[in-house]
Nucleic acid binder design. Structure first.
Lengths: 205, 205
DNA sequence: CCTACCGATCGGTAGG
DNA sequence: CCTACCGATCGGTAGG
């Protein structure tokens, strides 16, 4: 099969297209942003590739130059949300004081969602559209996130910073308090910082 | 137009089919229940009438014996949710003690959602599918509900039961804490009462 | 409550 | 990145 008779022991075949161009990556990033808006407005199943393409000034078939399937778009939206969510949370895990750590986690979660409500609307509501493997991947990463919360709430309970109770129920209550903001938060009118402070003050007296 | 020449001054024309039969109403209630499940699983737009009909052992066209349009099904799901939500809340409004009233509202909201998470999943996530007039109607009724919450939180702040802050933000935080349960609550494993107590204890120390 | 059917739209492919 | 097209499925109607 190797028709070339040259000797240099370099890689065989055509050199891989290692790096997609900057334009390609920028355009894909825009497509993902637009897809998040479409999936938020109509849901994943009902949000069509025609909608996404039209908002980008493209034809539907051209999207297949960037992704292989519709579900790739949803996966990319989720990857963006998870990346944003997980990067900071690992530094917060090292805060020693339970009260300080819990406050930082609540604050982080409130800021996260209120800074891009449309992105997290898809993250929270459109999980059913993910392929099986992608769903499992999201579940694993979310588990890491939740574990930090559980450990911190347990520490806060042990330190008497918050009252006793089932940590799982308390964590879900706190996550709900902050996450729910994607449904009502008005980026033009409300301040993420003020809301974050409100949530912290409500839980930590 | 009146071809009848008889004299008794009774109602003209064929007597109106005043009351739908009990079987009809039972069957419609089942259809609404099934529709809620379908709209929860696939979203309103993507959830098909074929899905609903199949789950009822009917053909799609037969659903049009019960409703005129697909959106009627969504409206009926919303009407059920709102009816359940609003009936009890008016009695709670008359509790004099701010602390007691706030505790009762939080408890009511937590029990409401955890007792039928699938129903409220549609109520909270599928609003975009409603016809314009139905959406306005839901908005009006929800406003009444929220006003009770705002007034109660303001009274609780004035009484020093909870810390100061923007009542709108605090109410949204509390509503989020309780409503979010539709996403994680497992009816077979978790107790609505325990969760309601947890929420009350988290806000009222 | 059924069979049969309509026009519109869907995700995806062929081939350039 | 395009035009042209595929089979499948959608909400809804005709007519019984």
């Amino acid at each position: 099969m190797n028709t070339s008779q040259s000797d240099p022991p370099r890689k065989r075949g055509r050199p891989r297209n290692l790096e997609p161009s900057q334009e390609y990556r920028d355009r894909l990033e825009n497509i993902v942003r637009v897809a998040a808006d479409v999936f938020q407005a109509h849901g994943y199943e009902a949000g069509s590739l025609d909608d996404v393409a039209a908002a980008m000034g493209l034809r539907k078939a051209s999207l297949y130059y960037y992704v292989k399937r519709k579900s790739d778009l949803l996966r990319l939206v989720f990857e963006r949300a998870i990346t944003v969510a997980l990067t900071e949370v690992e530094t917060l895990a090292h805060l020693a004081d339970p009260r300080e750590r819990l406050a930082a986690l609540i604050r982080h979660q409130a800021l996260l969602v209120t800074r891009d409500p449309a992105l997290f609307a898809v993250f929270f509501d459109q999980r059913a559209g993910l392929e099986h493997a992608d769903l499992a991947d999201v579940g694993r990463k979310e588990h890491l996130y939740l574990r930090q919360f559980i450990l911190t709430v347990e520490a806060a309970m042990a330190a008497g910073v918050i009252g006793p109770g089932d940590p799982r129920l308390v964590v879900n209550a706190i996550i709900g308090m902050t996450s729910w903001s994607y449904k009502w938060f008005d980026t033009r009118r409300d301040s993420p910082e003020t809301f974050a402070d409100t949530c912290v003050a409500l839980v930590l007296r």
